[in-house]
């Protein structure tokens, strides 16, 4: 029979995906082996479409021989959706429920894991500045992707997004005029340099790198959704071991510890906002 059975094709494609992922790992050490399959597959497909490639196998051959091309694929496979004060109710809850706890500490270390292009890190810096806590804080903002970190470090964003960010800032309980935090220049805005003062940006891969400090707060929002449960448990082990006693963990709105091994080691601080507190 000439016609390809749709089921066979589906199985064939699964093999292709596995080979590509294995190839990326063995050739470059990029480890997507425990990523959630469905979204990874979608991203591979949209990369094929953009590049005009006929199949995953063709992509694989090219990626294995061409490092620059592999890096381009890497950008295509990682997600960088973010905004300042994304999910404003999270920041509101942080202000009301977490800040009072942080006030009791002489020095506060915060790890923002998977910070992407930095908008949510600067949002936290603004919040802490308004709460007059920022001078006592150090924020470690990490991402596995060097390219997005560069954007994060620069703190320069398209001016057209400021209207949306202003709305979110206000909903998040912002106390000033949002435009105080940036200087507009043509099509871009530059965030006020004082916001960056207490932030250390650095490369860190949640899949392969270990703990590098002890933190009072770890924020990791909408990053773990791209991992399967094996990898989620691995990262939660890392987070647990990197949090001090009674340290605070903030996840994305639809993320949960419920389906991990770490559920019982935390208590809910603000349930609806996925703010947890390490029990001991």
């Amino acid at each position: 029979m000439d016609c390809i059975d749709p089921m066979k094709e589906l199985q064939l494609e699964d093999v292709e995906v596995q080979l590509l992922i294995e190839g990326l790992y063995r050739r470059y050490g990029y480890d997507f082996r425990n990523y959630a399959q469905a979204s990874l597959k979608r991203r591979i497909h949209s990369f094929l479409k953009v590049e005009g490639l006929p199949s995953i196998s063709v992509l694989q051959a090219q990626v294995l021989r061409d490092r620059a091309y592999a890096d381009r694929l890497l950008m295509g496979l990682t997600v960088n959706t973010t905004a300042m004060f994304r999910d404003p109710s999270f920041y509101m809850a942080f202000r009301q429920q977490v800040v009072p706890i942080l006030r009791t500490y002489p020095f506060i270390r915060i790890w923002h894991a998977g910070c992407s292009t930095g908008q949510e890190v600067y949002s936290m810096a603004i919040l802490l500045q308004e709460e007059e806590l920022y001078h006592r804080c150090r924020i470690y903002a990490t991402d596995a992707n060097e390219q997005v970190l560069r954007t994060a470090r620069n703190g320069i964003y398209p001016a057209k997004q400021m209207q949306e960010y202003t709305q979110l800032y206000l909903k998040a309980g912002g106390q000033r005029t949002f435009s105080e935090y940036y200087t507009a220049s043509y099509e871009s805005v530059i965030l006020r340099p004082t916001l960056r003062e207490r932030i250390v940006f650095g490369e860190h891969n949640l899949v392969t790198d270990g703990s590098f400090n002890e933190f009072n707060v770890i924020i990791c929002r909408n990053v773990l959704i791209y991992f399967n449960q094996i990898l989620q448990n691995h990262v939660h082990e890392l987070f647990y071991n990197s949090l001090c006693k009674f340290g605070i963990l903030g996840l994305g709105r639809q993320e949960t510890l419920r389906f991990t091994k770490y559920e019982t080691l935390y208590e809910d601080l603000v349930k609806a906002e996925k703010l947890y507190r390490r029990r001991s």
Partner: peptide, 11 residues
């Protein structure tokens, strides 16, 4: 939809 469970994305 994955096999037996759901995943979410913000793509």
């Amino acid at each position: 939809v994955e096999s037996g469970y759901f995943s979410l994305s913000i793509d």
